[in-house]
Amino acid sequence: MAELLALQRRFAGALLDADAAGQPETWLCGDAQLIEQRLAIYRGNVLAATTKALGAAYQVIRQVVGATFFDGLAHAYQRQVPSASGDLAEHGAGFADFVAEFPHTASLPYLPDLARLEWAVHVAYGASDAPAWQPNALAQLAPARQSDIRFDWAAGTAVVDAGYPVAHVWRIHQAGFDGEFKVDWSVRESALVSRDGLLVVVSTLLAGEGCFVASSLAGATMGASAERALAADPGFDLGQLLGRLVASHAICGFSIDKEGTP
């Protein structure tokens, strides 16, 4: 296997850097010029595959910055965080951090938040289907016990706390949006990403609401989460929020410890 390993290392080196190809005419047929032409095909294929995958995960960003600039971002990202999987759905997890540091996107300060939102949408798209449940069971619980419940959340549910109105930016770029194509950049909002059946939904959360959902997603009881939410926003309306979360199937069940369990 040693020979194959050496050969593949050389090939990999040639793919990553045209100048590092060494003397490929010693291990590939043809003259140096022909080989370089052919290796370029493979280099192109690699970039095309990862760029396409990144574009599929970050469709709104691609629209916002334009295809040409996005391709440049994708190429730079692939150089910095090369694909590490045959499953291209995994490529792009670090894109938010990348655009936060990349000098040429500094003039788009909302881009990292938008990237975080888009990745959460991408993850939610392929997340497990939520089980069906009976929300009546919640109402049937004795009021004294309700604060002890822990909610079950649909797989892929996430809160994206952003400094910019990225949920709104995301929504106005969706096919079929026919509202005003306009953003109020002074608004700061949290976004909730969740699955409603097969559909990924992005909705806006007020400050206390984001706090509640994040706390509950982390495993805290309803009571503890509501306390934290009220501390962040005295106007927090638990009933209103729960109504929306149950109706949209973001919440898909609950559990409660046995009486007397701490």
Binding site: M1, A12, P82, S83, A84, G86
Partner: peptide
Amino acid sequence: WSGLGGQHFNDLLPLPHTHEV
């Protein structure tokens, strides 16, 4: 083959047609 050393090239790279392979 498609990858080496934890990097995946997401393309179908050819193999030498040898007894070792």
